[in-house]
Amino acid sequence: MMTLKVNGHDHQVDADPDTPLLYVLRDDIKLNAAKFGCGLGQCGACTVIVDGKAVLSCVTPLVLLEGKQVTTLEGLGTIGAPAPIQRAFMEEQAAQCGYCIAGMMMRAQALLQRNSKPTDEQIRAELEPHLCRCGTHMRILRAVHRAARLMDTADAASTGRSAP
């Protein structure tokens, strides 16, 4: 049994230390956003944020997460009160099937948290580990740019970011 901090809450998790975070998030904590895509770290669908950095949850065992903060897409905002990145993806209609999107959004969020004005080239380089099969790439890029602008506005309007 170990304590896992997810989206600001402590969860008591009863799973082997070698269990990948992905299954703990989906199976034990009943979260949806992190997706199983390959289990091999090749596609990015399972990406979440751990201590501010984008991490592939399918190859990150529970044992590495002692004392760390895990953030999933659910932790950024809700349909009613979306985070800037969520608003941006809605406004750009940046999804087709959407299966890969949660992972993309988490890596983009981590990027924007450390670089609020990334260039197009930086966004493309950052998203390289992520696959999208529907071909929504153009919209995803637009959405990340929009998110950067929205966060900027949010920052200007308040002292803190709306997302962790």
Partner: peptide
């Protein structure tokens, strides 16, 4: 699209 909000907020979509 009616399905996108759930997909970008971690709703049950699939």
């Amino acid at each position: 699209r009616v399905d996108i909000p759930a997909k970008v907020t971690g709703g049950a979509a699939y």
